[in-house]
Nucleic acid binder design. Structure first.
Lengths: 409, 409
DNA sequence: TTTACTTAATTTTATCCTGAAATTAAAACG
DNA sequence: CGTTTTAATTTCAGGATAAAATTAAGTAAA
């Protein structure tokens, strides 16, 4: 799975690597001169000149207006070509399918949002996704032939070797052949991945943090998942199943069954769904809570959070308990991975101060804090849009790696 | 920390990479012809010939006797040069300091074992280590100038940036400047690392498994630690603190304080020390256990395991509880990392069947087992010698990376 | 205005690397 | 003794990078 197998290095591979290095420098620093690229990458100015020329040929970079320097010849900055190629990102969520068409500078050109109707059969939903993609592509704002890839973030367990969504509790899908479907319905290269991993990739690609190398993005929504980035690269594990953070066992005594069939998974205690379910159970015996005003069928985590914010004791207790389980589990992640940052994304993480004020102390209490460890706990850089930025990041990473074939028009 | 920073690729770097590739092929497959190396590495025969020549020049490889093939010209196999260079591995344990001098084929040439006297001050212990190293080096079996590096596996938290042992509960050390000491007392390049990480490195370097890419070595001894290998490389985390598995919080209610000051760390429930301590506490109120025959001051985990094996209910309960905590924590590791294998090493892991029979079912019950996940749970390939093989692996990896300067004699 | 200076980018040149093909080497076999 | 087969080397062409020299395009001072 995405293995770092030692590969021979030919001259061509060497150039590709160095070209990618140039591209990443420009991505990171925006417009910059060839000389600056040379200094940052360590490559000679001659090499940078040649590689930049080639990247301009490929329409990945363009020269901007010459920019005066304090002294000497003005630089000719290069930046990403906003008109050369385009990409599409899709957030396939249970309630909405969101799609965006952007240029290489990730400036949105067209956006679409439709309801998912996740109750209908998988084929119906996937067709809808394909329609969104084709709808985004077919616009007179751009030349559709210049679209070089589509990224899709999906809630569920995905086998990237086979391209199959093996299981998605959110959609109630099993063994959906996503890659095959998309390849036969969409005329562009399609990349997809689990939404938590996509979010993590989005954070290192677009996050405004100081360029983390190792980070973990914990997605606390209806369920709980994690995307792990190691050395600026997504970590998949042997079978592409790394990050099943939501199914960590969190206590020894047998209490709660998780949807996965196991006992005492974190998800069963701290996910959005769990928060709602656990509140419902307590409401049966506690009639004083303001949550009793909400019909049991409609009660969700947002209601609980809101009630807790208003000081409802039952809601507070449920939420605090959930954050206790989550915080200890995150502390465990920090101990094991020692990442630079934990990013918290997903619906529950958008609950505002009450979320951070309840969770952070638990983490700090339980982390193995040593004098040389430093870590940040941060919100997502694009709240509410983590998934779609993650989807875009999948495609952009392929571009930065130069692993996408660039068609000449 | 050991970051995979994108670096420019010069012709020289290209050659170094390919040379390392050749070296690793030979390491993995033992004696092999240039043609076989070419096929495995993907490099052309011409390139392999040239690189092999250079590696023979460096005395890293030698040609063996030509070996007849079914038809055609006999091959001239190349293998690691048993007389070109030597390395030293040190296991710095709390009871013994073990050292071994080997050749490049990791064939032992000289071995030493002395008691550590860990009660004495750090300087005394470190001097003893230096003495062991110099004693191993100064033998008429080899030319000491041909020693290219020393690896040391230490129980404790080590900052590899500064070369300081920040904290070692086993030795009761704080802020010991290990690198500085060794550099001024030993005339060879010295590498050191935490013992759990060293063990993990030893497993991928010398383990007889099928060449794992991603594995975790859990070291269950007096304390608990983990070494994480991702993509055949040790994972250090941002501050070099990855793998603090022993200090994962394992339950929410406040019960047991760990030596680290936190509450409810795994170590406080499942380490060798914890097993002994928890047995002692119960013995105060249960007088029927056969463990009462052992003076409280001498009681250790081995006694508890032995009593459990003999059917003593108290010992069994204590041990089963410990394995319950350990098993659930390991299941969590499997969920998050999805590695090919978990290797169990360290004293407690050498307890025989009772260890495996108690632990494995807990892991299996708690792991998020999906149809596409496969994992192995294995004992250390070199029981009782994991640490020293890990120490040797540190040096060997440097050789395989060609990052050690090879002196010409 | 003109000359010196400074910084940016390109061109030239030398060196180095790899791969493909041709060649040489060393056996087995009829 | 030549043919066949496999192993290893040599030759040679095609690229790649770095260092140095050169050109480009400004500013500042005389």
């Amino acid at each position: 799975m995405n293995r770092n197998t030692a590969e021979k290095l030919s001259n061509a591979a060497q150039t590709k690597h160095n070209k990618s290095l140039v591209l990443r420098s420009v991505w990171k620093h925006n417009a910059m001169s060839r000389l600056e690229i040379s200094r940052i990458s360590g490559l000679s100015t001659a090499t940078v000149s040649r590689l930049v020329d080639s990247l301009i040929q490929d329409e990945l970079l363009v020269e901007s207006q010459p920019k005066a320097t304090p002294k000497g010849r003005p630089m000719k900055p290069v930046r990403f070509n906003g008109k050369g190629h385009y990409l599409i990102g899709i957030d396939l969520g249970t309630t909405y399918i969101r799609g965006v068409l952007t240029n290489l500078a990730i400036e949105p050109i067209k956006e679409i949002e439709v309801v998912t109707e996740s109750g209908k059969d998988p084929e119906y939903v996937l067709k809808k996704v394909a329609q969104v993609i084709m709808n985004l592509a077919n616009t007179n704002l751009i030349d559709p032939k210049k679209i070089i890839g589509v990224g899709i973030a999906v809630a569920g367990i995905i086998n990237l070797n086979t391209g199959i969504v093996e299981y998605s509790p959110a959609f109630n899908w099993r063994n959906i052949e996503l890659r095959e479907f998309m390849n036969s319905h969409v005329p562009y290269p399609v990349y997809f991945d689990n939404v938590s991993r996509a979010m993590a990739l989005g954070e290192i690609t677009f996050g405004n943090g100081p360029g983390f190398d190792d980070l973990i993005c914990v997605n606390v929504g209806y369920g709980i998942g994690a995307g792990i980035v190691i050395g600026k690269k997504l970590f998949y594990g042997t079978d592409g199943m790394a990050g099943e953070f939501g199914h960590m066992p969190v206590r020894g005594d047998e209490q709660v069954f998780c949807t996965c069939g196991k006992k005492n998974c974190l998800t069963a205690y701290a996910s959005g769904d769990a928060i709602a379910q656990r509140a419902k159970i307590r409401l049966l015996t506690h009639t004083t809570s303001i949550l009793n005003e909400i019909p049991a069928g409609e009660l969700n985590a947002k209601h609980v959070v809101e009630a807790a914010r208003q000081g409802d004791p039952l809601a507070k207790e449920v939420f605090t308990e959930a954050m206790g389980y989550l915080g200890r589990a995150i502390a465990g992640l920090l101990n094991i991975f020692n990442p630079q940052a934990i990013i918290l994304a997903g619906g529950v993480s958008l609950s505002g101060n009450i979320f951070w004020d309840t969770l952070k102390p638990v983490i700090e209490e339980n982390v193995f804090d040593h004098r040389s460890t430093k870590y940040s706990i941060l919100p997502s850089s694009h709240p509410n849009q983590s998934a779609i930025y993650g989807a875009l990041a999948m495609v952009l990473q392929e571009i930065l790696n130069l692993s996408l074939t660039i068609r000449k028009h």
